[in-house]
Simulated assay, not measured.
Amino acid sequence: MRTIDPAKHAARRQHIVHAASELFATQGFERTTTAQICKAAGMSSGNVFHYFPNKRAIFIALLQDDKDAKTERLARAATEADPWTALLDVVQFLAAPAAEPLAPPLVMEAMLQAHRDPELAELLSQDSTAEHTVIAELLTKAAATGQIDPDLDPDNTASWVMALIASMYTSAATEASFDPAGQLPTLLLILQRFLRGEPHAHRRSATTEEQRTGGSAVT
């Protein structure tokens, strides 16, 4: 019986996934054929099917490609001593791939396919839940340490944070002029001002000064 080299086996699987990624991103799942994947990978169909039973398995492997690294990164963030810094790091970590050319269309295609594939929908839901849990936990800790507005509900706020991250991908996929890398600092600034309530405090101070002087406060 031939011994399987785990490293070589994983490398072959990764090669197939990488070859399929551009096809899925540019053509979509439905219009991409196994023959096209085999050609892009430079492998026979028998070789490809040795590593994946079908096209769907390749697509799921692509979407789960970084799952272990993401799980480790989120787990590490949840234990950081400074929850505010950890939160911003998590947001940047989750949003940064939107700047990669293939990531936004693949995310959009995954969302489309999830409506047709309950198993895929469950996998995406698990990923989303894991992200939401860590973000909500960091928000709770940040509120407890006085780093953000304590009146914000952690679960609801985590949902809004994730919605803003998701908008990076949808905007990149649908708007040719949208620059995810250039917009990331703006996303972080929006979160900072929303979560910490800094501009609200500034406006209250300005309003108080205007009322006291009867005119416009100098800012």
Rank of each mutant, 00 (worst) to 15 (best):
T3A: 13
I4Q: 15
A11P: 05
Q14H: 11
I16S: 04
E22P: 00
L23C: 07
A25S: 14
E30A: 15
R31A: 15
T33F: 06
T33I: 02
T34L: 15
K39N: 10
A40V: 01
A41N: 02
A41K: 04
N47M: 12
F49G: 00
Y51I: 03
F52I: 13
F59L: 09
D65L: 15
D65F: 01
K70V: 07
E72L: 11
R73G: 00
R73T: 03
R76S: 14
T79C: 01
D82V: 05
P83C: 06
P83N: 05
L87C: 11
L87N: 04
F93L: 14
A95D: 03
A96P: 00
A98E: 05
A103G: 04
P104I: 11
P105Q: 11
M108C: 09
M108N: 05
E109A: 03
E109G: 11
A114G: 10
H115W: 12
R116Q: 14
E119S: 06
L120T: 14
L120D: 06
A121N: 01
A121W: 08
S125A: 15
Q126H: 08
T129Y: 03
E131I: 09
E131K: 05
T133H: 07
I135C: 00
I135M: 06
I135H: 03
L138T: 05
G146K: 02
G146I: 07
G146P: 01
I148E: 02
D151T: 12
P154L: 13
D155L: 14
N156D: 12
N156I: 09
V161Y: 06
M168H: 13
M168T: 02
T170L: 14
T170S: 15
S171D: 10
S171N: 08
P180S: 02
A181R: 10
L184E: 04
Q192N: 08
F194R: 04
E198P: 03
E209K: 12
R212S: 10
G215K: 15
A217E: 12
T219W: 15
